[in-house]
Amino acid sequence: MSTDFQQAREALGLRLRELRLSAPGGRLTGTRLAQRLGWSHSKIYKLENGRQTATSEDLRAWAGGVGRPDVFDELNARLKAFESRIRSWRRQLAAGHRPVQDTWNLEVGRSRAIHAWEESVVPGLLQTADYARHIFLRYADLQGSARDTDAAVRARMRRQEWLYQPGRKFHVLVWEAALYALICPPSVLAGQLDRLAGVIGLDAVELGVVPLTAPLKVPAANGFWILDDRLVITEDWHAELWLDDADCVTTYLRVWNTLRDSAVYGSDAQSVIAAARGKMRPP
Rank of each mutant, 00 (worst) to 15 (best):
W62S: 00
G64Q: 12
Q35T: 06
W104S: 14
L231H: 13
A246V: 09
A274E: 14
L33C: 06
T234W: 08
E10P: 02
G124A: 12
D236S: 14
G167Y: 09
V232I: 08
Y164V: 11
P24N: 07
R32P: 06
R260N: 12
W39H: 04
P123H: 08
L125D: 04
G96Q: 00
V172Q: 00
R87L: 10
V255N: 08
L37D: 08
W62K: 02
G198C: 03
P99R: 02
R159M: 03
L253Y: 14
I44L: 02
R281L: 15
D102Q: 14
A275F: 00
R85I: 01
D268R: 09
S120D: 11
W175P: 02
G65E: 05
A275N: 02
A239N: 02
N257A: 03
L216R: 00
D236L: 02
A178Q: 04
G38S: 04
Y131G: 00
R195F: 02
Y164D: 15
D102K: 09
L93D: 03
R147I: 05
V122E: 06
R154T: 09
L14N: 07
E176T: 08
L28I: 05
T258N: 07
V121A: 13
A132S: 13
W256G: 04
V272E: 03
R60C: 09
V108M: 05
S267F: 08
L196C: 12
P215S: 08
G13E: 12
Q101F: 11
E10C: 01
R168P: 04
K80G: 06
L12E: 03
E176Q: 14
R98V: 12
D4S: 11
K169A: 13
E240I: 03
A11L: 06
S187L: 07
R277M: 11
L212S: 05
L253S: 13
G201Y: 06
R78C: 15
H134P: 13
L75D: 13
E107I: 03
L207E: 05
G191S: 10
A113L: 08
L126R: 00
L189C: 05
L243R: 02
L189M: 10
A246M: 06
L79R: 05
D73R: 10
L182I: 00
S262D: 01
D228V: 04
R158G: 11
L106V: 12
A263R: 03
A178G: 11
A140W: 01
D58E: 06
F136L: 07
L241G: 00
L189F: 06
T31F: 12
D203G: 12
S145P: 07
P211I: 01
D130A: 15
R277G: 08
V218L: 14
S267K: 07
L193E: 10
A77S: 12
Q192F: 13
I233F: 01
L212G: 15
G67E: 06
R17S: 13
V121S: 12
S84Q: 08
S56E: 12
A221L: 14
A23L: 13
V232K: 01
Q127R: 03
E107N: 07
S145G: 09
A151E: 15
R230M: 11
H238V: 05
A274G: 11
H97E: 14
